[in-house]
């Protein structure tokens, strides 16, 4: 089989494609969370700001909690949806 054909019939590529799509999904979720809290809460008048641990709520939810949520989410995704596989070809 031609080694230059990257879409040759390899069961591992199916899994790899799915995992790459999960990466796209995660980054979209990350962006929406970050954008939604930052500009949703942060666009209010400053006199209406609320504060969490002393930080403006928009910043706390978008950047601090958003970071923690992503780490937790990614750890779960790694455990449940990412598959262990051999990266070398069998004959090697």
């Amino acid at each position: 089989m031609n080694k230059h054909d990257i879409n040759q019939d390899d069961y591992r590529f199916k899994i790899a494609n799915r995992e790459a799509l999960i990466g796209v999904g995660l980054v979209l979720f990350n962006f929406v969370w970050w954008y939604g809290f930052a500009y949703g809460l942060g666009s209010r008048d400053i006199s209406e700001y609320s504060y969490i641990f002393g930080l403006p709520a928009w910043f706390f939810y978008s950047c601090v909690l958003g970071f923690i949520v992503m780490v937790v989410l990614i750890s779960i995704v790694m455990k449940l949806f990412f598959t262990d596989m051999l990266l070398e070809d069998e004959e090697n």
């Binding site: 790899a16 790459a20 990614i74």
Partner: peptide, 11 residues
């Protein structure tokens, strides 16, 4: 942190 390794990934 995650995108590079996931997108290039195992493929």
């Amino acid at each position: 942190g995650y995108f590079v390794l996931m997108i290039l990934g195992k493929k």
